[in-house]
Amino acid sequence: MTAAKRRIALISPADEARTVLADYLTSAGFDVHACDELEVPSSFGALVVIGGPRTSTERLLAGVRTWIKLTKIQRIVVLTSRPTAWRDLLATHGERLTVLPAPVFGWDLVDALRATEPTRPRGA
């Protein structure tokens, strides 16, 4: 995993759960930048997006759609209790977008983030 790919943004309302999750992802080898919102995410290898109870899914969808369009981020992982709302975006950008229905194990997030890492045999 390159340094750029290790660097991820965790976009979620600030609370204790976010801190705990950021620590978990850090222990799994990621350089985690936790924030409420993200204007320019291009310096990250991947994004983890978790909506809060007052976050509208439509707003999250619009944000992710913009990031997909304007950046070359390889992986955006969305954790949501409304995965079906993301069906259309997944159909067109499934190679960069992963949608996980909450609740999930932390390692499911880690696996989704690592899914784009190239695994080539030595000497290939």
Binding site: A17, V20, L21, I50, G52, L79, S81, F105, G106
Partner: peptide
Amino acid sequence: TRRTALPTVVLEPM
């Protein structure tokens, strides 16, 4: 009816 609970990440099994 939509659920409003915060989506959660479980860091250890039950």
